[in-house]
Structures are given as structure tokens and as C-alpha cells.
Amino acid sequence: MVLLREGICPGATAQLIQALRDQNVVTVVQLASADIEDLAQKCSVSYKTLVAVRRVLLAQYSPFPSNGADLYEELLASTAILSTGNRSLDAFLDSGLYTGEVTEFVGAPGSGKTQVCLSLAVNIVCELKQRVLYIDSTGGLSASRLLHLIQEQVNNLEGQSEALQRIEVVRVFEVYRLLDVLQDFRTGFTHQVTGARCSVKAVVIDSVSALLSSILGGHQLEGMSLMMQLARELKTIARELNVAVIVTNSVVQDSGGGGGGGVKPALGRSWSYVPNVRVLLQRGTEGAAVQPMKRTATILKSSRQPTRISTEFDITSCGTLTTQTASSQHSTGDLDNAD
């Protein structure tokens, strides 16, 4: 609410402002919505002067109108799309991971969650030359494993060293520590106009379920409160700092699926509203000797892609992701009640 005052614009003299106040017109909104001809007569001021003052105030304080197309173009201009390092997964995710969003990979142990996180982190630091904050809560990240993946993309030692320096690794083993790390990151990002933190384009947390599962369930209201606090923090970081937030989550048996053997993402329905994109990773059929490391990715939630579409990719013996066939649209039996 903008109050009318002397000098707020040319022509806004003390006498005019006082005359308007005598008629209970004290804000720009009230002046803009008033009948100018009637107000000029009641205030005993020039109609032309009042019209001119209102025109200037409207130009100064009225928002410019915009339509949906303009807002969409503005969103596209401020959004970066980060490649996962795998062409099949990129196409599957509508070109890759979007900044401003929370993307969640869910799956059982051995489904490839950590490897996907490592692959996309390495691709961001090697190919895109951007920085990544990698938060490890499972002990799944080792320096040798990370270096090996970088060596697959960068040949010279100097380039490998630079890529390693672009990944900031933090190990956390409790949710309180995770919240501290995220809040420190957001504060540091906001206060530094330039610097290392400001070039961070992705925040990876592997895994959130490892930190939250032990404090949820039963009557542990504090656990639910902490989970919602973490959810707000992740959403805020993604939206306000324009970074891609990637988290991993485990799966639990879905007793209500009807089939008896289905799975669904852990952490419950409340957490299901947190990720903008949710992808289920599954290991290929056991006993397939020719492709023992084949994985299937299925979209459970997305605003851009239809759900239940799947794609296949390989994790090679050295840990890199390789493309399988193009995306195929089909439904998986154990996803009927994934959320």
C-alpha cells in the first residue's frame, strides 16, 4: 500500500495532498479507483491537474500486465536443463534435470540410485563445468569411485583435478546435520554475489530415506515435523536459488497393491508431494548373463512426461551409464499404487 504524500510525483503539492486526505483519499489505490471528476469538485482542485497526477502515479506504481506466454518464456530463460550423462535417460526426462525442481530416484538396494547420482554429478562438473554439492548419507561415495568416473570423461590430469574440485562432498548421518548443511548452503549462496557457491547448479542427497526412516512411524510427531522442514528447505533451495535438487529414496512393500509383491516409495504419502519428478529404478531380470547390469527407469510423477513410461540403460563394469533402447511406453505391475 503506497500512501499519498507531498512530492510523490510532479504536481503532488502539499495543498493537493491535504485536500485529498480531507476526502479520505490517502493511498494511490484510492486515488486510482476514485471518480476523478467528482473528486476534483469536492477538493476544489483542477480536474486536469488531478488527472495528470493520477496518470503519473499509475505509470509509476501499476504493474505491467503479462500473459501466460510471457511468464512461460521468462521461466524458460531462467531454467537450465542438466544432462544426466546418458542420452536415453535425458530423453526420458524431457532433455534432462531441470533447475528449480526436486527430482527423486527411488528403488531397492542395487537398483542403481547411487550410480545415477554419481554419473549426473560427474557429467555436470566435466561437461557443463558447473559445481555440485553432493551430500552422502549412506557411505556410497568413495574418492576412488568418483575419480574413476571422471577419468572416463577427462583424459588429462589437470582437467581431472579441476573436475574433482567442482564437487563439494559432505557426509551426514543425521537429519539435524543435513538441515544445518542445507541452511548454510542457502545462506552462503545468497550472500555471495560471486564465488564457488554461486556456480553450484545441482544439490544431490543420497539418500533422504536413510536419514528419515529411523525417526518416522508410530507416534513420533517430531519425525514428521523434521521431514516437512526438510521438504520446505529442498523446495526453497530449488526454487529460490535456481538449482536442480536430486534426492534418492528407498522402496517398501506395498501391501495394498492387490498383487502381493508390489513396491512403493518409502517415506509415505506426505513426502510424495515433495518431488516434482519421481523416477523408479529397477534392476533387470536376474540370470540375464549377457546384460547383468541392465536397469529400467519408470516415471511415477512428472509435469512434463506421461507416467508409467519406461526406458532401459546399462551400468557398465566401470560404473558408467550406457544407452539401451529408446523409451518404451508400458506399465509395470508393481507400480499401480506407487504413491
Rank of each mutant, 00 (worst) to 15 (best):
P292Y: 05
G261I: 08
L75K: 15
G287M: 03
A59D: 14
R269C: 11
L234T: 11
S88K: 06
L321A: 06
K48E: 14
T307C: 04
K264S: 04
V175A: 07
T236M: 09
C43G: 04
L234M: 12
L267A: 10
S270A: 12
S119H: 14
H219P: 03
V125K: 03
V274W: 00
E158T: 09
L221Q: 10
S328T: 14
S310F: 06
T298V: 15
A121I: 11
I246K: 00
L178T: 02
L89H: 06
N123T: 05
S213C: 13
V56H: 12
V200W: 00
L97H: 03
L164C: 15
V251N: 05
R186D: 10
Y273S: 14
M227G: 06
L146I: 04
A297R: 04
R295H: 03
P65I: 14
T27W: 12
L149N: 05
S111L: 10
L76S: 14
V263N: 07
A80G: 07
V193D: 14
S199H: 11
P265K: 07
E233C: 13
L241R: 01
M293I: 00
K42V: 05
S328H: 10
V263F: 10
G259T: 12
L57V: 10
L118C: 07
A196M: 05
I315T: 03
L133W: 04
M227C: 10
Q115A: 06
T79R: 14
I309Y: 00
S331L: 04
L97P: 04
F64M: 13
V290N: 10
E168I: 12
R55Y: 02
Q282K: 06
L280N: 12
N337H: 11
I299T: 02
I167C: 09
T285E: 15
R239F: 02
I17L: 01
L147R: 13
